[in-house]
């Protein structure tokens, strides 16, 4: 059955069609939410919230885009709104307070698990831009529109986030806090 038909059936209240739509897009939705919020339990809540809201508001889906795009955007909004609310309470940690994910100096491969753990440790403001740009492939213009900031701010946040990630996943060196980032061009 075509996805359009599934959507039509789901709009009419057909739970089986909803289940099929869920099955087709659940991983994508959970993944983006999980990476954006950096917390497994919160991601479970928000993914659930996104899906319930999607089926509740499905009559508003006009089919201008694919259903997958729509639910992806909806889930992203749910996650970013939560981050926005919680960022008012959070204080940005200094790099000195961040736990370092220790890697052996001869570890040549960027381990995906280590990368995911480090992502979770980024301050939310950095993480959301890094995830949207480097992981999800959004442009700075799209991010700026979504976050209501300028593309320049998005770029700046991205570069800071990458620098923070490097600190988190790099092996300790004798230059810790030394040359790089201080004697600059």
């Amino acid at each position: 059955m075509e996805e359009r038909e599934l959507v039509a059936r789901a709009k009419a209240g057909d739970r089986e069609a909803m289940g099929e739509l869920y099955e087709a897009h659940a991983r994508r939705v959970y993944t983006v939410v999980r990476r954006l919020v950096g917390d497994e339990h919160l991601a479970e809540d928000l993914s659930h919230e996104a899906w319930v809201r999607a089926f509740e508001k499905l009559h508003l889906f006009r089919g201008d885009s694919a259903f997958g795009t729509w639910i992806y955007r909806l889930a992203t909004n749910v996650a970013l709104n939560r981050l926005r609310r919680s960022s008012k309470r959070d204080t940005v940690e200094s790099s000195a307070n961040l736990p370092r994910i220790v890697k052996a100096p001869d570890d040549a491969v960027v381990n995906q698990r280590v990368l995911s753990l480090a992502l979770d440790q980024l301050p939310p403001g950095y993480r959301r831009v890094l995830v949207l740009h480097d992981v999800e492939g959004w442009t700075h213009e799209e991010i700026a529109q979504q976050l209501n900031c300028s593309a320049g701010t998005s770029k700046s946040q991205l570069h800071k986030a990458r620098a923070r990630m490097r600190k988190l996943i790099s092996p300790p060196t004798s230059e810790e806090g030394g040359a790089r980032g201080e004697a600059r061009l």
């Binding site: 739970r15 909803m18 289940g19 869920y22 099955e23 659940a26 991983r27 994508r28 939705v29 959970y30 993944t31 999980r34 990476r35 479970e44 993914s47 659930h48 899906w51 319930v52 089926f55 509740e56 960027v110 995906q112 990368l115 995911s116 890094l130 480097d134 992981v135 492939g137 990458r162 990630m165 490097r166 996943i169």
Partner: peptide, 26 residues
């Protein structure tokens, strides 16, 4: 390399039982 590794991050499995919980909410 870090940037490349980001683009290679795979999708995650949704939590077990998520659909059942969604159904209950629906």
């Amino acid at each position: 390399r870090m940037r490349m590794a980001f683009s290679g991050l795979g999708e995650l499995e949704p939590p077990r039982g998520e659909w059942e919980r969604i159904q209950a909410s629906l």
